[in-house]
Write a protein that binds this DNA or RNA. Structure first.
Lengths: 343, 343
DNA sequence: TTGTATGCGTTATCAT
DNA sequence: ATGATAACGCATACAA
């Protein structure tokens, strides 16, 4: 093994007294190449540890075989789980994954998108920050011809495929379940006011109340920024009310765990005094005391479908076609556990 | 705004009747450029939405401003958390982050490393898969001049900086704490047999036993592959023994949560019948019932230090220097909660 | 202050 | 079956 630094196709060509074109062909196992030449090239390539330079390939092919993924936070259970499946699916198709997190900040999201726009990726997968209300940065991306797919936290302000669940229906189911189990004053611990999925769940919550002939009380709707502090403050406010709720619909398991812990600490029982259902079906749901009833989302499908949708767009784009902005709605399942069934 | 597709420096040069060199200089705000020329270029660049082509830049500079990160699993609490901080730190320094997960498979890890070797990244951060015992793929990376840094799951078979904690000491502390609280038969629910950090913790566990004059029982040491099934089987085996342990040191919170759940289900009490301490200080530790005593690692420092170490290496490498393989040992803290203190 | 020419590593289109 | 050469988009040493 000689040749210290990076060895290029040119080095091999020179040493073998052939042209770079020949080496290139030999390396890529093309037709019209003499077996002997090919063997010589391959042998030397191996001996010298030749590795094709990806940057040069990117430039000439004008694609990177890389996907960009932007999520609010890499350490939320749901997102890290979906990301894991995205990486899996992308990897299986020969794509690398570049990550960015908005940290729920619109500016960082914009920043991330702009970074990816400089030709680093062939397409972008995004789940919006909770601050995102305008979408100029995403339209910019599309104008530059970079395919885009949403998952979970989407928007209708941009024409792009998305992979979501029917949050409204899922929430209605969850609240129906609480009502069936005798709960009468159900509060909703929601996410930030402008978070689409939180609002969709709000509609399902209201649907269920209406259908059951219950009144919707605005003071039983509390918004939350996903911090434990805010959750505790919210729960405290609810418990201190003149008409405290006897059940909670939580927008996420994280919030539900914190809420239940607070409720238990305050001397009430779950599910007897307060029933709880939430979203995501974090594995901890089954281990928690009481175990937590939660809406399961098909996380692995989230990852797979999102990647498929993006890859299809990328492929079509190369032949000049466009994919009609399809919306994939994944099924949810309410996993009923102890927290919502009175003993 | 005209010019539909991507606009290049060449387009601007042609339209302005100047050379590409001039445009390049104007864009990068260099000296020796006439204000008028500069303004004209900048204006047109803005009007036409010029974006520098990253692929071309990469090729010219022969660096990508991208870091590769390979972890066993993106959805383990510890790794997703560290990754989040790595992304943060990298982003702050103007670097993008490419991710790969080994899924605890040596082959996938090797695969990931080889992908990154083809000139996609300026450096690599890795936490080894539990299957990894040989390191040829990492040496290959280094031979190709790509700086490497380990965090958490490292190896001494490769000369590279690493960011770790003193697992042996941390484990000893944790077991000392159990002993101080009156536990006498302490078992260790370890990770896979060849996982370095698990074995380091084993040594600390044995240190503590020895110092306290306790015997080490080989049948009180059970290895685990991080699946709930295996954990339950292990715990069942322990509880069914003639001399069941009265306390458990768990190699991770995930395992501890599952173990406690199993113990509770089997009718025993934690911490009265069985005390439990573990590692990672997952936020769920505080919310769990009973709350879980755990060794906290400074996760944010893991991310920051790892990136700093890598960036320093990259910088030094550019001036032909090498960084002595420094090992950063981060402090740990035992967070004492209910699971290890008898009432 | 600006332009010319060359190189970065590879593929691809012509020839031969 | 192979070789020259022109791209890909940009930076830069050297001229002017």
């Amino acid at each position: 093994m000689m040749k210290s630094g990076k060895v290029t196709i040119k080095d091999i060509a020179r040493h073998l007294n052939v042209s770079t074109a020949t080496v290139s062909r030999a390396l890529r196992d093309m037709h019209d190449i003499h077996p002997d030449t090919k063997k010589a090239v391959l042998d030397l390539a191996k001996e010298w540890d030749y590795q094709p330079n990806q940057m040069a390939l990117n430039l000439v092919k004008s694609k990177t075989k890389t996907l960009g993924v932007i999520v609010p936070n890499l350490n939320y259970y749901f997102f890290s789980e979906v990301l894991s499946h995205i990486e899996d699916a992308a990897h299986a198709e020969g794509y690398s994954v570049l990550i960015g997190q908005s940290k729920e900040s619109f500016d960082r999201e914009k920043n991330n998108v702009e970074d990816l726009m400089h030709g680093q990726v062939d397409g972008v997968i995004i789940s919006l920050s909770r601050e995102t209300t305008e979408v100029e940065h995403l339209q910019h991306l599309q104008r530059r011809g970079i395919p885009l797919v949403f998952f979970d936290r989407h928007t209708d302000l941009v024409e792009a495929p998305s992979v979501i669940v029917d949050n409204r229906k899922a929430a209605k189911n969850a609240v129906d379940h609480l009502i069936e189990n005798g709960y009468k004053r159900i509060a909703y611990l929601a996410g930030p006011t402008n978070l689409l999925i939180s609002n969709q769940r709000l509609m399902g919550y209201q649907d269920a109340l209406r259908e059951a002939g219950f009144d919707f009380f605005a003071h039983h709707l509390l918004h939350n920024d996903f911090t434990p502090e805010k959750t505790c403050a919210n729960v405290k406010a609810l418990l201190d009310m003149a008409d405290p709720p006897d059940a909670l619909l939580c927008v996420s398991d994280r919030i539900a765990f914190t809420a239940i812990h607070f409720i238990k600490t305050s001397g009430r029982k779950v599910p007897d005094d307060v029933g709880v259902v939430s979203f995501n079906d974090d594995p901890m749901c089954a281990l928690f005391t009481p175990s937590l009833t939660s809406v399961a989302q098909p996380i692995s499908d989230f990852g797979k479908q999102t990647v498929q949708l993006l890859l299809r767009q990328i492929k079509l784009q190369q032949i000049g076609e466009a994919l009609p902005p399809e919306t994939v709605v994944l099924p949810t399942e309410l996993k009923i556990r102890e927290s919502s069934v009175r003993r």
